[in-house]
């Protein structure tokens, strides 16, 4: 594993009124790593991620994403990252091709590059038949795959995935993770939040957040040894209940 660090977080905090959603979290993510960001509902995962992708200002602490500061260089961060939310935000009333063109366009890709990327994406996902169908008419699993591919359109250094596989069958989830591996092999860093503990096993390293704090951070193997469990599920339950 290469030792180049692409996300550096030190004491990052987000306070809403008198509620501390994220409490002085610190961690590093290396280039090309699949970093699992785990935690129960309301543990502060999404809040922490929003600070890293530059759509929420931190209350204190520091963070550096792809070499840019989250306070002052959010627009530079946005050029270097991809993002896919749990609501997989493609336009339902645009076709697959139109979505690709629009997002390619606002990332500033050239016309040629867009049509090149668009053809490649459609071919890889086997979407030839539905390329001109409205996204709204496609099954959820397909939408998620397309959304993921769209988030990679501008060749970002890091991709942030916020619960990308919610609500789909195990086969589709499996296929989705194959896509994630492929992107990671190409050198893209993957920062992913999930509820599925089997998915946590696929990650290179995972952090587990409880009530705004990171309670554990290591490889799945080490975590299991440390907590004396045979599955990540057990590790998660032990941490979340303590």
């Amino acid at each position: 594993m290469k030792e180049e660090t692409v996300i550096k977080v030190e004491g990052l905090t987000k306070v809403f009124g008198d509620f501390t959603a994220v409490n002085k979290i610190s961690f590093h993510v290396r280039k090309g790593e699949i970093f699992g960001f785990l935690g129960a509902n309301g543990a502060g995962k999404t809040t922490a991620m929003k600070m890293l992708i530059g759509i929420s200002s931190p209350s204190s602490g520091s963070a550096n994403v792809a070499g840019f500061d989250v306070y002052t260089q959010t627009e530079d961060i946005k050029k270097s990252i991809g993002y896919m939310s749990q609501k997989f935000a493609l336009y339902d009333d645009l076709t697959v091709k139109e979505n690709i063109r629009f997002f390619g366009g606002i990332y500033g890709l050239s016309k040629n590059r867009i049509s090149q990327k668009s053809n490649l994406l459609i071919e890889e996902l086997g979407l030839e038949k539905v390329a001109h169908s409205l996204v709204g008419s496609l099954p959820l699993g397909w939408k998620q795959k397309i959304a993921f591919s769209v988030s990679l359109l501008h060749d970002p250094k890091i991709v942030f995935l916020d619960e990308p596989t919610g609500g789909v069958d195990p086969i589709t989830r499996r296929q989705f993770w194959e896509m994630i591996y492929k992107a990671a092999n190409n050198g893209t860093t993957i920062f992913v939040t999930t509820h599925y503990m089997d998915e946590a096993e696929y990650c290179d390293r995972v952090s587990i957040m409880v009530d705004g704090n990171i309670e554990a951070l290591d490889t799945p193997k080490n975590l299991k040894t440390h907590f004396g469990s045979d599955s990540m599920n057990d590790v998660f339950l032990k941490l979340a209940r303590s």
């Binding site: 530059g54 759509i55 946005k78 993002y83 939310s85 990332y107």
Partner: peptide
């Protein structure tokens, strides 16, 4: 989709 727009440059 606005959130998606907001994470673009």
């Amino acid at each position: 989709t606005l959130e998606q727009i907001n994470v673009t440059p």
